[in-house]
Simulated assay, not measured.
Amino acid sequence: MKARNPNNLPEKVCVVCQRPFTWRKKWERCWDDVTTCSKRCNNERKRSNRIARGAADAEGEDAMQCDVSSDASDGAAEKANKKAAKKAAKAERRARREGVSSGGQKACDLCARSVDLLIRCEIDRSSGWRMVCGRCWKTPAVAGGVPDGDGQNPNYRYGGLWKNLHRTM
């Protein structure tokens, strides 16, 4: 290709910002495919297409929904949710560092109390394995506080311990 006169370069109008832009050497092989003037406009076009595609998918899945929020508010809500999740994770890490958090604790299947140590056991044949806290494990309905069971519950079977590894001392 021979040299071009800089005063006589081809022009196009950007599909995003509607401003004219001129031919560049880097677009020499793909000038017919270029539709945006910059990377910023190209990213904006891709983002708006992605949002439009997501809105179209949502309309297709739920045709009964009448109220469809605007694309801008969807983006703002998504951004706010991400920010809130980030703040919550940071607060949890801070609390764990200070020893205030109950991070890593699990709930007992019988009393729903969150604890750092659970005992895996079978209480009756039909329900399968249960995770119980020490307080519930000591009751006669479970094991009576005896590792192999006290004999009052013939269906009791020990299955191991779960320990909270994120516990702060």
Score class of each variant (00 low, 15 high):
residue 128 G to F: 06
residue 132 V to E: 05
residue 113 R to L: 10
residue 169 M to I: 11
residue 152 Q to W: 00
residue 32 D to A: 04
residue 94 R to Q: 09
residue 46 K to F: 01
residue 161 L to I: 04
residue 98 E to R: 03
residue 169 M to V: 14
residue 8 N to V: 10
residue 141 A to M: 06
residue 67 D to F: 08
residue 62 D to T: 06
residue 72 A to D: 13
residue 163 K to E: 07
residue 94 R to G: 05
residue 97 R to M: 06
residue 23 W to P: 11
residue 125 R to W: 08
residue 115 V to Y: 11
residue 91 A to V: 10
residue 57 D to K: 10
residue 78 E to F: 09
residue 68 V to W: 11
residue 15 V to G: 08
residue 145 G to W: 06
residue 103 G to K: 06
residue 88 A to P: 12
residue 66 C to E: 13
residue 112 A to C: 06
residue 61 E to F: 08
residue 135 R to I: 02
residue 69 S to E: 09
residue 12 K to A: 10
residue 147 P to V: 04
residue 146 V to R: 03
residue 22 T to F: 07
residue 129 W to R: 01
residue 109 D to A: 08
residue 135 R to F: 02
residue 121 C to Y: 13
residue 15 V to N: 12
residue 103 G to A: 08
residue 82 K to S: 14
residue 103 G to Y: 03
residue 136 C to E: 01
residue 164 N to A: 07
residue 93 R to Y: 05
residue 147 P to Y: 00
residue 35 T to K: 13
residue 160 G to L: 13
residue 166 H to V: 07
residue 83 K to R: 15
residue 41 C to K: 05
residue 103 G to T: 09
residue 151 G to D: 00
residue 17 C to V: 14
residue 146 V to K: 02
residue 110 L to S: 08
residue 18 Q to M: 10
residue 106 K to Q: 13
residue 57 D to V: 05
residue 112 A to M: 06
residue 17 C to Q: 12
residue 164 N to E: 11
residue 20 P to E: 14
residue 27 W to N: 13
residue 121 C to R: 10
residue 12 K to M: 11
residue 65 Q to A: 06
residue 20 P to H: 06
residue 131 M to E: 07
residue 111 C to R: 07
residue 131 M to P: 00
residue 130 R to N: 02
residue 142 V to H: 04
residue 99 G to A: 00
residue 149 G to S: 03
residue 86 K to V: 04
residue 139 T to D: 10
